[in-house]
Simulated assay, not measured.
Amino acid sequence: MNEFDAAFFRRWLAAARAAVDREADHLTELDSAIGDADHGANLKRGFAAVTEVLDKEPPATPGAVLTTAGRQLISTVGGASGPLYGTLLRHTGKALGEAASVTRQDLATALAAGVAAVGQLGGAQVGDKTMLDALVPAAEALGDSFAAARDAAEAGALATVPLRARKGRASYLGERSVGHQDPGATSSALLIAALAEVAAG
Rank of each mutant, 00 (worst) to 15 (best):
T109M: 06
G119F: 08
T87W: 00
A19F: 02
P62I: 00
P62E: 02
G46I: 03
T67G: 11
D55G: 13
D128K: 05
L54V: 08
L88P: 09
K56W: 05
T28K: 00
H91C: 12
H39T: 10
K94A: 14
T61H: 02
E57T: 14
V50L: 13
R10P: 09
A37G: 09
S101Y: 02
D133L: 07
G82S: 10
L43D: 01
A41D: 12
Y85Q: 09
V126C: 03
V115F: 10
G35M: 08
V126E: 14
D38K: 07
D21H: 13
E52Y: 05
A110V: 03
P62A: 03
D21V: 06
A99V: 01
A112Y: 04
V136D: 10
W12V: 15
A15Q: 15
A116G: 04
T61N: 03
V102F: 12
V118S: 12
A33L: 13
A14L: 08
R11Q: 14
D106C: 10
L27I: 06
P62S: 04
R22S: 14
H91T: 09
D31V: 01
T130I: 02
E23Q: 15
T61Q: 01
A110E: 10
E52N: 06
N42D: 07
G93W: 01
N42S: 13
V115C: 08
M131H: 04
A37K: 07
V115R: 04
Y85C: 09
V77M: 15
T76G: 11
Q120S: 13
R22Y: 04
D106F: 10
A64K: 11
A100Y: 00
S81D: 05
A69Y: 09
H39Q: 11
A100N: 02
V126P: 10
I74S: 09
P83N: 02
A48R: 12
G63D: 06
T28Y: 01
D25N: 06
I74V: 15
A134D: 04
L13I: 09
L66M: 12
Q120T: 14
A116W: 07
L121Y: 03
S81G: 09
I74D: 06
V102S: 07
A117R: 07
T130Q: 09
D55N: 14
T76E: 15
L121T: 01
L88D: 07
D55Q: 14
A99F: 03
G122D: 05
I34Q: 03
G119S: 15
D21N: 14
R90C: 15
A80G: 13
M131G: 05
L89D: 05
A18R: 14
A113W: 01
S101P: 05
S75G: 10
T76Y: 08
D31C: 08
A80L: 01
A18H: 07
A64V: 01
A99K: 15
V118N: 09
A33K: 13
D55Y: 06
N42H: 03
A113F: 04
D36P: 07
D55E: 15
A124K: 02
T109R: 12
T130K: 05
A18C: 02
G127M: 10
A116L: 13
V53Y: 06
S101K: 11
Q125L: 00
V53W: 07
A18Q: 14
L43T: 01
R90G: 13
A134W: 01
K44I: 00
G79T: 11
H26T: 07
G93Q: 02
Q105I: 05
H39L: 04
T68A: 15
R90I: 13
V115L: 10
A49T: 10
F47I: 05
H39E: 10
V53I: 15
